[in-house]
Design a protein around this nucleic acid. Structure first.
Lengths: 160, 160
DNA sequence: TCCATATTGTAAGTATGCTGTCAATCGAGA
DNA sequence: TCTCGATTGACAGCATACTTACAATATGGA
């Protein structure tokens, strides 16, 4: 038996595969990927955020996020507007169509998230989520794009 | 606070990011990715396996595995030989160089796997791994490339 | 033997995810 | 004010991941 099957890295890769497959299956009517969904949700929460701050808020790579934004703009779910104060940045806003999509897709997303954990007993689901949340938080700095949920927005005039 | 932070799918994506980052950091002296490592280990365990069966054994997409194999061959860690019985398939073998690399890299890989779980208390590590193993197994069919660890080798003359 | 069907490797197309680099721009300090 | 360092978005390049499609080949049944 290959040792890889018991390695944490292998198991997390498998779970990521499985989670994405379930998400895509539940949401196929909407043609939206998990990454695109998370981006839309965060833009709704932080209207007028720029791409760099968005990448910190959802812990996506800045380079990758560029093409994600491009696709969301092509589908007319978001708009990019030049920043009045900073000629380098472009501010992101949901369109009406993007807001409507988000409203409609939420039941499918929740079904997907539930299906991921469904095979476990309810008590085990809670335990797993608690440990996973803890581990992600404690390992935050280990990834190349650490999550900066609040700190990233300090210069946006939204906090503090 | 964005709801995405508590979704299982989001947490698994983050852990995958973190696990890959730690693996790459620990193994950077060897220029080998997690996927390439898993492929080498499985080829060592199953010498003469073909690409399709390898993809089932490590639950990688068959298309993706093609380019992985190409890169491993370019680095001279594996060889592809035509199958005597089936003109369609090419059989995979570790080269001396590939076997040596695998021997040398193992301490780094083990360090990486340990680091991924390190922030948790030992008892919590065991709990998390047990639940994760269970969940991956129970969700096996949900991914597009289910693991077929043993069944995939039945036609290779290695089992039963 | 012949043929419908399946398998295998490969390729094209799309989407993350990361490493670099670069020009434009900004901001702070001399 | 001028200049140096940092930031921002964009791009190139590499590596997974998945979908679909296709030609070559195998295989089982008529």
């Amino acid at each position: 038996m290959d040792a890889v099957y018991t390695a944490p890295g292998y198991l997390f890769r498998r779970m990521q595969q499985i989670a994405v497959a379930i998400f895509v299956e539940e949401c196929k009517a909407y043609d939206l990927t998990p990454v695109q969904y998370a981006s839309l949700v965060s833009i709704r929460t932080h209207p007028g955020i720029d791409a760099t701050r968005l990448s910190a808020v959802i812990a996506f790579d800045r380079s990758t996020l560029g093409s994600v934004i491009e696709r969301l703009e092509a589908k007319a779910y978001i708009e990019r507007k030049p920043s009045p104060g900073d000629k380098r940045t472009k501010l992101l806003y949901l369109t009406k169509s993007g807001a409507a999509l988000l409203r409609d897709i939420i039941p499918s997303v929740e079904r997907a998230q539930a299906r991921i954990l469904q095979p476990l007993k309810p008590a085990d689901r809670k335990t797993l989520m608690a440990l996973l949340t803890q581990l992600v938080d404690l390992n935050n700095e280990a990834s190349r794009v650490p999550l900066r949920a609040e700190g990233a927005l300090e210069h946006l005039g939204k906090s503090g």
